[in-house]
Design a binder for these strands. Structure first.
Lengths: 129, 129
DNA sequence: TTGCCTGCAAACCCTTTGCATAGTC
DNA sequence: GACTATGCAAAGGGTTTGCAGGCAA
């Protein structure tokens, strides 16, 4: 995919992609830690640039969990919605199917195409209530 | 309300509250601009501290629109959900009623109490599709 | 060899903290 | 007069940019 676009396949790019896939959900900093564990010296700047690139290629996506905390994950992984508790900060995953009715309604009524997997819903979890 | 809690009523606090109510949705920086327009010299630190305080008092709330951009708004205003277009960054408002079925379902099935007004949904708006 | 990628350092934005002073009660 | 709230300055976290050198093609 990279070469098709005239881009280059570098060790760093492979490492970042691998790390995201392995970690499941991870912030840029967590990806950095994981990459550095194998090959020290990789700069966090490269992590940011690579994450952005991989997202353009639709290999990964990101979601805003809270306070602007970005988490990236493998794009083809089972999609899910994130339920974020504002009290204990815990994150619960939810099958995207739960949002299908809403998505359909938004598309029909408002012409808005909901990016289901990009959604984070805030509230209060069972334990905190 | 402030005095009940042993807190003080200051011009700055009145100005911030007024600005939030008047602006509808505003980032801390926008609130700051609005306040400074009337009374220059009010520091942005005070804006942050006051916004936090007013939120504790349930006079205002905030929502994460994108990239960690906080926007505050008057708490008793008609509640609404935000539809954020990831392409053009536009924000559309949606009646919270649209999310009631989902909220009910989350409560029943997962014990998660959805904070409806705090939700921002990401996707692509009509124009960008 | 070409020119994209990287590492490094510094800048950047937004937000928070420490401290002395001002101002409310 | 007591003690909270403010302004100022500086630090902080996370992210982005500029630039010279390194490396894939």
């Amino acid at each position: 995919m990279l070469r098709e676009r005239g881009l280059r396949l570098t060790p760093q790019r492979q490492l970042v992609l691998e790390a995201v896939r392995r970690l499941g959900h991870a912030t840029p900093e967590q990806v950095h830690e994981a990459v550095v564990a194998n090959s020290p010296g990789v700069n966090i700047t490269t992590i940011y640039r690579t994450l952005e690139l991989l997202e353009e290629l639709d290999l990964i996506t990101h979601v805003h969990l809270s306070h602007g905390a970005l988490t990236y994950h493998w794009a083809s992984e089972d999609q899910h919605v994130h339920l974020v508790c504002r009290k204990c900060e815990s994150v619960q995953e939810l099958d995207v199917a739960e949002l299908r009715p809403l998505a359909a309604r938004l598309q029909e009524q408002y012409g808005f195409r909901l990016d289901i997997a990009h959604v984070a819903l805030f509230g209060e979890c069972k334990e905190c209530q």
